[in-house]
Nucleic acid binder design. Structure first.
Lengths: 155, 155
DNA sequence: ATTATACAGGACTAAAATGGTCCTCAATCC
DNA sequence: GGATTGAGGACCATTTTAGTCCTGTATAAT
């Protein structure tokens, strides 16, 4: 279905929660309560976010989690990558690229361009954006994305 | 990893192969040979594409598969949807939207906007694009995408 | 008509990913 | 020292995915 894993979803919700109160550290138990999710699961998610460098943790009483940098400098793709690994549309758009079918494939280059466009899009969405509550939805348009496909590449 | 399933990947490759020779019908066995994938798997993929209305099939000898419409009128999202179902970043960005955590979630609206942007991006990529071989990659930029987030929505 | 070709539909299985829990250890504060 | 809180990883259940195969049906050539 080309969707985020559930853990990634949790991660975004938790990150947003922290982003709305960036001063104090937040214990896992407190966050779990706030977002109404099981403690062990939230805890697992938080650990992944720490390992990815998006959160800082402090042990001991009065400890907890804080953002490693301002919410405006954390992007959606950072969160997704932290939980799911690199965003790539196809197997072969990854780094290793060990697809031996590349010869007969014929679409890999273009998929890679699409991948890049998706990544760029997700990179332009920040945690600050996600954390904002949205009382009204007024469609204001703003171009944020470019993609180059073979057909436009001069051939 | 936010990536396409392998079957979707196959579907794109096979569709591109057909798109490059749109006149004759192509038998599943012939396509499997051309793209170097197992016949049963290719066959399964083709059936899904027919059911989604992207391919037309003809039984009997000299039968096979043809595009249901020109490659320029089939988008990447059509192919993805045919195999994986609707593209939605989160559970709750789907139609039913039966997420009872929506109250404490606080990010669902913005994820839905991101989903929409991804869908729009994938909709702008056509099978004709994908099928093109790409001898040179000259980065020419072309804005194709807009997204509206809460922060830009007037509020 | 008969036969060979080729798709339709679905059952079935094996393997992998995912979601979720729990236990033990380490750090920190009081 | 004791309470609190995170780190790390093992572990299991469930779901999803990939892939195969079988039976049936439509079509064309002869």
């Amino acid at each position: 279905m080309l969707k985020l894993s559930r853990l990634t979803d949790y991660a975004a919700v938790v990150m947003a929660q922290i982003a709305r109160h960036p001063e104090q550290p937040h214990a896992a138990a407190e966050l779990a309560e706030a977002v109404q999710l099981p403690h062990p699961t939230v805890s697992k998610t938080l650990k992944m976010l720490v390992r990815a460098g998006l959160l800082l943790s402090q042990r001991g009483s009065q400890g907890g989690y804080r953002l490693a940098r301002p919410a405006s400098q954390i992007s959606a793709i950072d969160i997704i990558t932290a939980i799911e690994g690199p965003v790539a549309m196809t197997e072969c758009s990854q780094d290793d690229g060990d697809c031996e079918l590349a010869a007969t494939c014929g679409v890999s280059d273009n998929w890679q361009r699409v991948s890049l466009a998706v990544r760029t899009l997700l990179d332009s969405v920040t945690l600050a954006h996600l954390a904002e509550t949205t009382p009204i939805k007024l469609p204001v348009r703003l171009p944020i994305q470019s993609v180059t496909l073979a057909s436009e590449a001069g051939r």
